[in-house]
Design a protein around this nucleic acid. Structure first.
Lengths: 346, 346
DNA sequence: ATGAAAGCGCTAACAC
DNA sequence: GTGTTAGCGCTTTCAT
């Protein structure tokens, strides 16, 4: 490995000068700089980032902790986060906890403040939250995609107004005439997605529908959305619409409905939340409430970096861009014959 | 930040002893060790991984470079790779190059040998290949998911027998009686997926079918699979089966077929390669050739670590577990009426 | 079994 | 402008 001092020797300067050339190009005479640059090129020198990190006390690396990158939502977030990090001069280390708190804990203990300058954490449950608070001593931690803007956590966070997302979904369904609605509530990876379902319920009530016909809590996946929807339709055949707290569930629901011979949206409408890429790739394309994943990821990274640059005690919350309804092909007006069926089923 | 020497002072020993406690627990007297452990706990000491990396000359971190983690295949690979790395005592840093050679280059230059002890690279095109070879000077590089076992690259690699995968797909379709077959060939993220298509063609010929009725090269995504399949069916209405070099294309093809009113597999069979999670989640569930992603990822990580432990000059190739046909619901026997249509279309 | 000391490769004051 | 000098926090001989 070629070191700074080897470069220095060859350029007939001292290590400090080489270091200066590498950063504040101001304080070194052009000719000298050129000599140094030449030596660097000839030797194929590349700075040792570990040494630099040690000397500077900062590694220019960020960590992103998430529960399971196999969930299609995360990769989309990761892409945007990595891009934002890179543009700000940081590396991004993605830590997959495999839904295992022990692993999350191990990562946090090991890397916070030593390998990385800050950590972005997604989907914290209460246990994870404690760990994060403890880890704050070592390095800035920021919660991304916080689901409860109305109750800020004890840590800095970027919140998404999921209640609003739920409300938009409800208003859309109500506007289409649906009154007999089933809900699929995901358990996320850090607790129930209840901000979304609460927002939905509230808007439903505001629209004159006392409550959803039926609610079901399920694991966050296409498969469980499928299973759950089968159950829902078996027990409540009159449903004319299904709201799922996330797109995976909604996609599973569509498949179940189609599989059972129901037309979507002819017989039953389906709406989700998130707008993952898959949402526009399935047929019928999924109507959903987009939560601006990319913007949120970039905002989270920027906020974390700000936190690193100017440490700030205590919590602070920034709200991500508002959710927006994306109308596609899985929702449509309630049909007459379903109206009757709905009565029967309710 | 609590340092080693603070711990040492409190435990009334020297830094070396603390360090010894932290690794070779052998050479330190139990009572001393206990005192040290106590001090560590009381102070909440956590080793600075950068300092350790600098002193040891190794960071216990691996990098995984991939072109675009938004492609659903990668997250599945990443999960397995991260798990294998963690179990071997390594961190995994996922580097998303965003399909941009410049970014790949920058990553390689910056991290190889300084931040990470080794790099796993996926989907190298020739340009990337050159970069990797150059980077080998700094740290071991290993190509994962190499598509051409018959021509080993100039770097160590873990190869997957994709030709065999293509052959399995061909044999399956032939066995079902299909003779009028369309091919969708993905352009991957580092060149055509031609090992797969060649394997398919060869097996087709061996089965007495001179060649596929029609071939199309397309970008690697559900959307382009959809578009391409529309075109294919418009120009060759007699096709009774479609082979896609990867599952995304196959899934898009199914959607197109269903959208056009063809039954799958009743009228047209569809088969892919890879067996991503989505393959069993779509309807009809996709018949595909599984390439043992998890095993391959774990094998790649282990091989890379071996390369780090005992550096080895020159290329070396290890073959991942063989592909296997996964029969699901998107393929079925050729139907009579299609046989006629096939004649017409051929 | 423990301590002393050197050094990993780089940065950052401060002199000159 | 450039050199000198100290570290950053840890590991690792080598003495003791």
């Amino acid at each position: 490995m070629v070191t700074l001092s080897e470069v220095a020797r060859r350029a007939r300067v001292t290590a400090a000068t080489v270091s200066n050339v590498l950063r504040n190009r101001e304080k070194v005479r052009p000719e000298t700089a050129e000599r140094v640059l030449k030596a660097i090129a000839e030797l194929g020198y590349r700075p040792n980032l570990n040494a630099r990190a040690l000397a500077q006390g900062r590694s220019s690396t960020l960590a992103l902790m998430l529960s399971n990158i196999a969930n299609p939502f995360y990769p989309e977030f990761v892409v945007a986060a990595e891009r934002a990090a890179r543009q700000a001069g940081y590396f991004l280390m993605v830590c997959n906890t495999d839904d295992d708190a022990q692993i999350g804990r191990a990562y946090l203990n090991q890397i916070a403040g030593t390998l990385v300058d800050g950590v972005l954490v997604m989907n914290t449950d209460t246990a994870m939250n404690e760990l994060c608070i403890a880890a704050m001593r070592s390095a800035p931690i920021l919660l991304a995609m916080w689901e409860h803007p109305e109750k800020p956590p004890a840590l800095p966070c970027v919140a998404v107004d999921f209640a609003q997302a739920g409300a938009l979904a409800a208003q859309h369904l109500l506007g289409l005439g649906h009154r007999n609605i089933g809900m699929l509530i995901g358990d996320g990876c850090g607790g129930l997605q209840d901000a979304r379902s609460n927002g939905f319920r509230t808007a439903l009530a505001a629209g004159g529908v006392v409550r959803a016909t039926v609610e079901m809590v399920v694991r966050d996946s296409i498969d469980s959305g499928y299973e759950a929807c089968m159950t829902l339709m078996a027990t409540h055949p009159g449903l004319t619409a299904i709201f799922a707290t996330n797109d995976l569930l909604a996609i599973g629901a569509i498949q179940a409905l189609v599989g059972m011979g129901h037309a979507v949206p002819g017989d039953v409408s389906v709406i989700g939340i998130t707008d993952i890429a898959l949402a526009h790739q399935v047929r019928p394309a999924l109507t959903t409430v987009a939560i601006q994943t990319e913007a949120s990821a970039a905002l989270s990274i920027r906020s974390l970096i700000r936190l690193i640059d100017e440490p700030l005690q205590g919590p602070s919350m920034v709200i991500a861009p508002a959710p927006a309804l994306i109308m596609r092909d899985s929702t449509g007006p309630r049909r007459k014959r379903n109206a009757r069926a709905a009565k029967a089923g309710a």
